[in-house]
Design a protein around this nucleic acid. Structure first.
Lengths: 216, 216
DNA sequence: TAAAAAATTTAGACTTGTCTAAAAATAAAT
DNA sequence: ATTTATTTTTAGACAAGTCTAAATTTTTTA
């Protein structure tokens, strides 16, 4: 088994890999809240274990083995988040920190039974896909509301910013997963958007529109 | 917050305190699977934090603060065990190791909601009492089946040995929590006992009779 | 009650994961 | 294409938790 620190590095590298193929030392340091020197040390260990491909100064990629571990941790994180929201009635902005601890519980059998108990959910409370036990998931293609034109519609299906502040704001505006929205107007001056969310009208900034995703 | 190691020491000391008021270094070392020298080191740290009363060579007791932490960990352990058995359908001999990890999840709110979700169970799958959020529980008085005479009865309410082997044996003999048993005979030769368990007759050794508990 | 045995503590070392400060390599800019 | 700035790595140190071996204290036993 891997240590808690190793798991956190692999997870961070996985997430960063979604934006950049090669992940840099500084990116990891920022993501994991450590110093670059500490990251370098850990990268050597992970490379020794053949969980990452690492060449000095060149950044890293996950090996298949490393990606498998990362996806298993992400599976656990997202299943526990689903559990916390659906069974224990937490709000979607409250569950991240708890899941951050729970994702390190090791039993595979436990997580498979949890999955079954909740009837194999496909997405976590923020719309992120839950990998199956083999690490497979279909990444539903999403695009920001910001990419819509006037009179176009979509179903809210994910967020790009997972911060509690943003999630709380969305909750208050009823901009939650599954809601159908239509862009009724775009204000030229600041590119902010007027949305029709079911029978409510909402005005969101460009910033929000960029971070709120709909299914393609 | 306390480290994982500290939590494990406090828990071990609590359990050992139930049998001996003063817990010795060697007892802790055995319980926690470390060496006596390591225990001494940790005892100093716990004493500095005022979680235990420690005087060199004299063994330790928990302070109120230490006991409170221990009871909270035990609360979490037992609630998770209950969850694993009642919600995820694990058997009572399968859950200890998993709960051993889950008991260190820190959120108090999480554990209180879990408690509510399961409708405030009073005992874990092995019959051990679950402390409430303040660390209170009524320790139901139990006695071993070995203390019964012929024709006396009782309801199985706990075990003294929590090992999977013992639990599996009991399961097979249908000697599980809540079952009513009556002693129909005691064999003079080896003090083994013949039990009537609902409509089944079972023969158990003295050893088993000592480790299987009924409500007084 | 003095010697032997057992339990406990101290001393010193090791591993994991982190840090700061300095050195080296890469990337950016004039 | 050099110099400058940025990024990354190395070197050396530290805290937590553990270990072995040796020293010390307590307990047991003759």
């Amino acid at each position: 088994m891997n240590t808690l620190a190793e798991e956190n590095y692999l997870k961070a590298i996985y997430h960063l890999s979604l934006n950049d193929t090669n992940v840099s030392t500084n990116q990891i340091a920022a993501a994991i809240n450590t110093k670059a020197a500490s990251v370098t040390d850990m990268l050597k260990k992970l490379a020794d274990k053949e969980l990452i491909n690492y060449e000095k100064y060149q950044g890293v990629t996950l090996t298949n083995a490393g990606e498998k571990i990362a996806l298993h941790i992400i599976r656990k994180h997202r299943l526990w988040e689903y559990f916390l929201v659906e069974k224990l009635n937490f709000k979607w902005d409250e569950v991240h920190e708890m899941a951050e601890e729970m994702e390190h519980i090791s039993s595979v059998e436990l997580i498979d039974r949890l999955d079954k108990f909740m009837d194999y959910p496909k997405h976590d409370p923020h719309g992120d896909p839950i990998p199956d036990r083999d690490g497979n998931f279909k990444k539903h293609e999403l695009k920001p509301i910001a990419s819509l034109n006037v009179n176009e519609s979509g179903v809210i299906s994910g967020v790009r910013d997972h911060s509690p502040t943003f999630l709380q704001y969305l909750e208050k505006q009823q901009l939650t997963i599954g809601k159908k929205i239509t862009v009724t107007d775009i204000i030229e001056y600041d590119n902010s958007m007027i949305l029709q969310v079911e029978n409510i009208t909402t005005h969101i900034s460009r910033e929000v529109a960029k971070n709120l995703l709909i299914a393609i």
